[in-house]
Structure formats: structure tokens, C-alpha cells
């Protein structure tokens, strides 16, 4: 699959998520399951004090912040914590639409080191939409306490994207995370996300439909992923996509700020 994202259409899409690219060099999305310490990572990167807490769904307002790394300004968007991007809940739609349509220069997926399997589910789904992903294996200190070891090199090879182990509460691994994000955002590092292989019936269906999807969306959207959503019968995504393709119309996704999830 490789990197399918070129700069085509990027500026117009950006305008839809107005003000995003105005005063910064790169836009970075922060995704992750609830309770992975995503807000703590956000705070550690931006130096902001977004409210953190140990209960699911805490980040109900999308937060934004920015940081400077090697004289470039990175704008960080904290997306709602979700288990998946599939089930059409408002939170998941916000996260998915942002990654899909706002096309961040890189997406950090925060995963919980003590519960990797469950968290990789989301990471794999994000990687189906965008290849420009950095996996942040957070809560590594908790994992050590629970005697869990994670081979991040192997994980990186297996997923085809950079991986860093962090303990955002103490700041461990944060410099490395910034470095990797910068590498991915300015394309110094080419990621090679490994696609999920589906069962034969699904792959057959993809093979039948994907060429026609590609003919319509070209390289602007990952056609394999979109084909899967069509097979899923995700009418809402198709609707949003329609508006997106018929450029000029604005996409009714949440504006920056707080009135989003109405």
C-alpha cells in the first residue's frame, strides 16, 4: 500500500478545517483509546494543562495546542478517545473525519502498553486511513511495574511505522516522540504501513469494488479503506465524502473549538 498521500487537494481540505494550517508548519493529530493517557501525552508535548483524569470519555472537548521542535511549529489536535473508528458514534466520526479529511501531516496513535492488543485494533484502523503514523506506546512505566515487556523495534517492523515507548507522566520518551513525529511529518522517514489481510470473502469483495472506487477518488483518499467502508454500508461516511469530492462545498465536520459534538 505504501504512502498514498500526495499534496493534492491538501490546501482546500485544510480550509475546511479552517485556521488549522495558518500559523503552524505541521498539523499533528493525536488519536488513541480512552484511558491511555492521551491527554497526558498532549500536555507533555504542548506544555498545556488540559484536564486529565482516569475515566473513559474524559476528553469531551477537542483540545488543541502547539509546540516548537527544531524551529518548526507543530499544531497538535487531541481527538476524542475511541476504541475503534467503525461504529459511527459521534466521537469516532470526529476522529475518523479529521484523520481522513483534514489530512494531518502525522497522526500519533497513543496505545496503552499494559493492554497492547486491544489498542492495536485502533492503531491498525488508523493506519488503514493514513500511513503517516507514529505509534506511542504509553504507560510503559505501568507496564514495567506489571512485568510486561514490549519489543518496540519488532512492533515497528511489524507495523511498518515508527514506534516509541513513553511514560508521558514523567516525560520519558517525549523527546524521541517529537523527533519521530518530525521525521514522519516532513517525510524524512517513509512509513510502510502493513495492511490488515482480510478473510477471502472480504478480499474478493474488495478486489471487485476497489478499482471503481479508485477511479472516483484517485489518490486523495485511501481507496482500499474506502472500499471497506462501502462494503460496511457506512452511508454517513459516503455522504461526507460526497461533499468532500464536490470541492467547494464545505464538509459538515466539526469546526475547531467546542461546539463540535452537538
Amino acid at each position: 500500500m505504501g504512502l498514498t498521500y500526495q499534496s493534492t487537494g491538501q490546501s482546500s481540505t485544510r480550509e475546511i478545517f479552517h485556521t488549522l494550517a495558518d500559523d503552524c508548519d505541521y498539523v499533528i493529530a493525536l488519536a488513541g483509546n480512552p484511558n491511555t493517557g492521551k491527554s497526558t501525552v498532549f500536555n507533555a508535548l504542548t506544555g498545556l494543562r488540559q484536564h486529565t483524569g482516569n475515566w473513559p470519555g474524559k476528553t469531551v472537548q477537542r483540545a488543541e495546542g502547539s509546540y516548537i521542535y527544531k524551529s518548526h511549529r507543530y499544531r497538535l489536535i487531541d481527538l476524542p478517545g475511541t476504541y475503534s473508528l467503525l461504529s459511527n458514534s459521534a466521537d469516532e466520526e470526529v476522529a475518523r473525519d479529521f484523520i481522513c479529511f483534514a489530512r494531518p501531516d502525522a497522526t500519533i496513535v497513543v496505545v496503552d502498553a499494559t493492554c497492547l492488543e486491544r489498542n492495536l485494533n485502533l492503531a491498525l484502523q488508523v493506519m488503514e486511513i493514513t500511513g503517516r503514523v507514529v505509534i506511542c506506546v504509553n504507560l510503559i512505566d505501568e507496564a514495567r511495574r506489571k512485568k510486561i515487556r514490549i519489543d518496540t523495534d519488532k512492533l515497528s517492523k511489524r507495523l511498518g511505522v515508527p514506534v516509541v515507548a513513553t511514560a508521558a507522566r514523567s516525560g520519558e520518551g517525549m523527546p524521541r516522540l517529537k523527533e519521530l513525529v518530525s521525521d514522519v511529518a516532513n517525510k524524512r522517514v517513509q512509513t510502510k504501513p502493513q495492511p490488515v489481510r482480510y478473510s477471502q470473502d472480504v478480499e474478493d469483495a474488495i478486489a471487485r469494488l476497489e478499482p471503481r472506487v479508485k477511479a472516483i477518488v484517485g489518490n486523495s483518499i485511501n481507496s482500499r479503506w474506502l472500499t471497506l467502508r462501502l462494503l460496511d454500508g457506512d452511508t454517513r461516511l459516503v455522504q461526507t465524502m460526497e461533499n468532500y469530492l464536490n470541492a467547494g462545498k464545505t464538509v459538515p465536520v466539526m469546526p475547531v473549538g467546542q461546539e463540535g459534538l452537538a
Binding site: 476504541y83 475503534s84 467503525l86 461504529s87 459511527n88 486491544r118 485494533n121
Partner: peptide
């Protein structure tokens, strides 16, 4: 419907 998706998404 939605309940089905949610349950699947929970794993």
C-alpha cells in the same frame, strides 16, 4: 444495528 457494532468493536 448499533449495539451489534459496539459489541464487535469492543472485541
Amino acid at each position: 444495528g448499533l449495539t451489534r457494532r459496539r459489541l464487535l468493536d469492543l472485541g
